[in-house]
Design a protein around this nucleic acid. Structure first.
Lengths: 344, 344
DNA sequence: TTGTAGGCGTTATCAC
DNA sequence: GTGATAACGCCTACAA
């Protein structure tokens, strides 16, 4: 039990009524300068702090926004969270983070937690919650989504074009002379994963190349699966000169798998990721990847949400995925003399 | 404005009083089975959800705990946050994360935010907030700290022995035959940093080796500073055969710096980090480092805090730092033939 | 401009 | 067991 100073005591100390004290604290309304000072003085003296719970009940606004993320320690969403935090800075709203771990039931209970608080608005990061549920929630409070597309709420969904991003990777590799590009995909249930795979296929098709099932393998977006994927690909015996992973984490795993086999990147094998995690600048070699403006999207989501809370209209925003060419990709054949076979 | 179903409506629908409805919802007290069922039915029918704000006001407990972290996207604290989340699971308490970014004023306002909500308890992760302030807060509500030591509150501070951890690194390197061990430290204002430096010095002393200023350089715990540190060390012209970084992030940077110079790890140079970030298993080569049980500490912090909330006594807990020997360290001289000079 | 009083949704304290 | 009713701390008409 936290027996705090209440507005009542402040008012008494300042010799004014609670309402006057309230007005001073809340700011907006005009109050006589002398009384205002008296109140502020009392606040300082007593160390008063507005009880946001009480204010929330009285005003009907909790001054908190719910953020449904999938993993609080995810390097990918971490950047988005940072952007959201930044965007909320100084707005008076506090973020309330809950994690869904990509499991529908867990997301559902996390959403219930947020609705039960209740929060004034929500930002949804990815996840598998059905569109219907989100639309339902959006009817009751401002809702923004990052990294997913909700049919009917397109304007409040912040996404990058994963198809295009994946295309640009393939094009880059093709330009470097690679024709046999292995693909380590994400879980097919995941929208980003399917979009990126689609980009890979489309770019190959555009280049007049056949899609080869034998070059594709499915991972789960985690490092270990990238490692295993490389092992599997090598065991298959099909030849390839570049690997494209559907995200950076799997690319890290793939990198290690190649390292274990003594296959050099990029001399023997080009490697590309997707996401441009903070770490990708510092891998050895730095990873060619696709940068999504995750921080910016978090920031934009927060700002758009604040607009909605202020009943201002928000319009659709587009974010571009940008290919970051670093040192994990190289022209095919340039170092052919030192090249080892990638066949096992 | 979220016009929600209220207890009142539920009670009316169930044909009972609000008090009875409240009792059913809250659980504890006994209620006639038939009325209980009627209430639960009404809850389902109307889709009632307890308003935690109102409950908080009435009960004096907000059922939320404040977590002061430094960076919501920090890979190090991320693990702790995950542990805390897990530890709170099913307890009814929700975590409220705020970030201080290692800046005293920002931490102070973050703490104010938490106190103003108000939260029922707090967990402090690192930071530079003065001990006095934390002690002051701890008098009003249960408080646990991870990664810092508050004089007078030792029992509620979860830490690992950084000195010992750093010692074990040096010992490992000495055993491998390294005598010239460069050290990339963290900011001196940082307690973990000074402890680790102390461990480095102490281990050298114990081994009868002189401490060489020229082998030590100060970074800021970020990757880029590790890269710069390697550059500086090489420019100094002093020779060394191993690098010990005060955290993994700087070790990543150092790794890249060495890579750029064509210095191989571990053939030409052994490299050790500290923290065992999730990524360190997947760098090339996997990094020898010191594992701190961060997830476990987060979990333990949450559990201890729940105990305190239940007015149960908590006792001091000790966590051990464990040297994880991986592939970035090797015996000196073993690959001497292929060795390049590390002098520039 | 200021104060009084009612209400926000729930829990807690009483009687019954 | 159950049901009125008074808090909880604040905001906000409404009246002065």
């Amino acid at each position: 039990m936290t027996t705090n100073i209440t507005l009542d005591e402040v008012a008494r100390a300042a010799g004014v009524s609670v309402s006057t004290a309230s007005r001073v604290i809340s700011g907006a309304v005009r109050v006589a300068p002398n009384k205002r000072e008296a109140v502020l003085q009392a606040v300082r003296d007593l160390g008063y702090r507005t009880n946001l719970i009480a204010r929330g009940l009285a005003s009907g606004r909790s001054m908190s926004v719910g953020i449904l993320t999938q993993d609080i320690s995810s390097p990918y969403y971490g950047e988005v969270l940072r952007g959201i935090e930044e965007g909320l800075e100084g707005s008076g709203y506090s973020p309330l983070f809950v994690s869904g771990h990509w499991r529908v039931e867990e997301e559902a209970s996390a959403l219930d937690t947020l609705l039960g608080r209740p929060v004034d608005a929500m930002i949804i990061l990815g996840g598998h919650t059905p569109d219907e549920r989100l639309i339902q929630i959006a009817e009751r409070l401002p809702l923004m989504a990052v990294g997913r597309n909700i049919r009917g709420l397109e304007d409040t969904c912040l996404r990058v074009d994963n198809v295009q991003g994946a295309c640009s990777v393939v094009q880059h590799l093709l330009e470097l002379g690679h024709h046999r590009i292995a693909y380590i995909g994400g879980p097919t249930s995941h929208r980003d994963a399917s979009d990126r795979l689609q980009g890979y296929r489309q770019a190959l098709e555009d280049a007049g190349l056949d899609f080869d099932e034998g070059l594709v393998i499915e991972g789960d977006f985690m490092e270990a699966s990238g490692l295993l994927a490389v092992e599997s690909l090598l065991l298959r015996g099909t030849s390839f000169t570049a690997i494209m992973a559907a995200n950076d984490q799997m690319a890290y795993g793939a990198r290690l798998g190649l390292f274990r086999r003594g296959i050099r990147v990029p001399e023997d094998m080009s490697l590309v990721g997707f996401d441009d995690l903070p770490n990708s600048t510092f891998t050895t070699p730095p990873l060619t990847t696709v940068r999504q403006p995750t921080y910016e999207m978090g920031l934009a989501a927060a700002q758009a949400m604040l607009k909605m809370l202020a009943r201002e209209p928000v319009e659709a925003q587009h974010f571009h995925a940008e290919l970051k060419i670093r040192e994990s990709t190289a022209r095919l054949g340039r170092t052919m003399r030192g090249r080892r076979s990638v066949r096992v």
